Computed example of a mutant assay.
Amino acid sequence: MTDTPRPNALEALAVAPRARPSIYPPQFAQRVAGREKRALGDPFGLKNFGVNLTRLPPGCQSALRHTHATQDEFVYVLEGTAILITDEGETELRPGMCAGFPAGTGNGHHLVNRGAEAVLYLEVGDRTPGDTVIYPDEDLMAVLGPDGWAMLHKDGTPY
Rank of each mutant, 00 (worst) to 15 (best):
V119F: 10
C60R: 02
G145C: 04
A12T: 07
L53F: 04
V51E: 04
F101N: 07
G145S: 04
L93I: 01
P25D: 06
R55E: 14
T4F: 08
L152T: 00
R38K: 03
P146F: 06
A12F: 03
Q27W: 11
D3L: 10
A19G: 11
G130D: 10
P5W: 10
V77T: 13
Y135P: 15
D42A: 13
I134W: 07
E36T: 04
E92M: 05
R35A: 15
I83G: 01
L13R: 15
G145N: 11
T157A: 06
A14E: 08
A150R: 13
L40N: 05
E11I: 13
P129N: 04
G89W: 06
A99L: 10
A82N: 12
P136L: 00
R94K: 15
R127V: 03
N48D: 13
Q27S: 15
T2N: 14
A103H: 14
P129S: 01
V119S: 11
V77N: 10
M1R: 03
Q27G: 08
R38M: 00
A82H: 06
A116T: 09
V143G: 00
E117S: 11
P5S: 13
N113G: 08
D147H: 10
A116K: 04
G130I: 01
K154Y: 00
L152Q: 03
